[in-house]
Write a protein that binds this DNA or RNA. Structure first.
Length: 488
RNA sequence: GGGCCGUUAGCUCAGUCGGUAGAGCACCUGCCUUUUAAGCAGGGAGUCGCUGGUUCGAGACCAGCACGGCCCA
């Protein structure tokens, strides 16, 4: 990264700063009172024409014209043109205007009018420098394309690429719509610990840290689940939390070690209720963002109109590798291998199912689909189905091939929960680093009685990808994690 | 972790067979009082990611490293 003094253009901009100071211009003044934003002037032009407006924003283009000039000024609402005439603002002010650069933040007071070419503009009577820029902006036509620089200097990405602003505006809509939707249904927003002495609620390796005062190893949460269910025990019947979870794993198009999850729990409900809630929530967001339940994602047209497809996991697996393969783990393993599933030797039944889903089933789930009823073995927090104790009431939800959420009828039998934890602990002892740990205190909570409960976790980042058409998770996270820049 | 690709002016990108660095935008100078990717004329701007190697000569070829991207695990 060049320092301003090291580039010709940066040096020029700094020189302009010094010359402005010499003219008595303060380049970094304090506050500025504006009367309008760009959008208001465009929308209210009929009423505002020939009246005075005060606007402020960044100069994104300057078109000099001898003793006059035009500039594009961009504020948070949009863009508006500024027209400057030497005979209107005077000799001195015009000299100062000539020293402004693209990128500077300015305030402009002047009359609203329409140019000969028909563009709504503000004719400057007074221009106030509000912040002098000392580095040039990316090129106006092609924008900023270098992915590395876009992520490292997201502010430049936001200035240069309008569609990036739209993605993050969409993210905000997803969050606010979800909050509003849940609050209307009587849900209460809560906050549970991010630093946890035990981590659980998902299969993942955690980030580990140390608290000096307590001399205690703590883990950044991998899920909110076990604390939220304690709140259901405590008598809050509908709770949700939106927050960051952390999983110590690699990054790819759909994974980021630090990601945002919405988790919610509802007493006296089950996973069927959670499916309906999911459908309704997604519909609300789609209507808010796109005005319809259907919209484009990449080359696909997605329609979120409910009801969504429901597909039993074991049916999907039978479909993928043949029904005969379901009779025992060995047969399933062989069948998976023969279909080209990458799977390690010695994988059990549950692990085989997971790999088959992962590689043969899920990537093809383009239309909204609930994959339902998972093997108990790979779902230690979910309640068994009435029809088969080896199968639990659980679903994962997929749209456009994206895994967006996970839900159970929550296991509330403390003895069964203890047995499930013990089975997980055995797996961890066998060397599975992602197996669930024992949480005695959580079992104690269940012993005090947790009502039947439906729970749901939704990956906010992936939902934002879906709703905004963003190709990757890094494109919906403002500052994705990066290695430090060590270029020399 | 593996494979492939990328890194050249502030930005977007060319750079042929290894022969001494290019364009557009941006910037500077001049002209220009309704332009809008303003225009016209002229100009300046580079540690070609880093380190080493091959060569008379490397942006280009080779090796290593750094950072990033895509795909796979």
């Amino acid at each position: 990264m060049e320092r301003p003094e090291e580039t010709v253009q940066g040096a020029q901009m700094r020189q302009n700063l010094e010359e402005l100071r010499a003219l008595g211009v303060e380049p970094y003044p304090r506050r500025f009172e504006r009367t309008h934003v760009a959008e208001q002037i465009h929308e209210g032009f009929e009423q505002l024409e020939e009246t005075e407006a005060v606007i402020a924003g960044r100069l994104t283009a300057i078109r000099g014209h001898g003793k006059a000039g035009f500039a594009d000024l961009r504020d948070g609402s949009g863009r508006i043109q500024v027209y400057v005439r030497k005979d209107e603002i005077g000799e001195e002010a015009f000299a100062a205007w000539k020293l402004l650069d693209v990128g500077d933040i300015v305030g402009v007071r002047g009359e609203v009018f329409r140019t000969r070419a028909g563009e709504v503009s503000v004719k400057a009577a007074e221009i106030t420098l509000l912040a002098k820029a000392l580095l040039p902006l990316p090129e106006k036509f092609h924008g900023l394309k270098d992915k590395e620089q876009r992520y490292r200097q997201r502010y430049l990405d936001l200035i240069a690429n309008e569609e990036v602003r739209q993605v993050f505006a969409g993210r905000s809509v997803v969050l606010s719509t979800a909050r509003e939707f849940l609050e209307k249904r009587g849900y209460m927003e809560v906050e549970t610990p991010i630093l946890q002495p035990l981590y659980g609620g998902a299969f993942a390796e955690p980030f580990e840290t140390h608290h000096h005062a307590l001399d205690l190893t703590l883990y950044l949460r991998i899920a909110d689940e076990l604390y939220l269910k304690r709140l259901i025990v405590g008598g809050f019947e509908r709770v949700f939390e939106i927050g960051k979870d952390f999983r110590n794993e690699g990054m790819d198009r759909t994974h980021c070690p630090e990601f945002t999850q919405l988790e919610l729990y509802e007493a006296y409900a089950d996973y069927n209720d959670m499916m309906e809630l999911t459908e309704e929530l997604f519909e609300s967001i789609a209507l808010r963002l796109h005005g319809a339940t259907s919209f484009e994602y990449g080359e696909f047209t997605i329609d979120l109109k409910r009801p969504w497809k429901r597909l039993r996991v074991m049916d999907a697996v039978a479909d993928a590798v043949g029904a005969d393969a379901l009779k025992d783990p060995t047969a399933l393993f062989e069948a998976a291998r023969s279909k080209g599933v990458d799977i390690e030797a010695g994988a059990g039944f549950g692990a085989c199912v997971e790999k088959i889903l992962d590689q043969l089933v899920e990537p093809n789930l383009m239309e909204p689909t609930f994959l339902i009823d998972y093997p108990r073995e790979i779902s230690p927090l979910a309640k068994q189905t009435p029809y088969d104790p080896e199968i639990v009431e659980r679903f994962e939800v997929f749209v456009a091939g994206l895994e967006l959420g996970n839900s159970f009828s929550e296991l509330n039998d403390p003895d069964e929960q203890l047995r499930r934890f013990e089975a997980q602990v055995a797996k961890r002892a066998e060397g599975d680093p992602e197996a669930h740990g024992m949480d005695e205190d959580f079992v104690t909570a269940l012993m005090h009685g947790m009502p039947p409960t439906g729970g749901l976790g939704l990956g906010i980042d992936r939902m934002v990808m879906l709703f905004t058409g963003a190709p990757g998770i890094r494109d919906v996270i403002l500052f994705p994690p990066m290695r430090p820049d060590r270029k020399e």
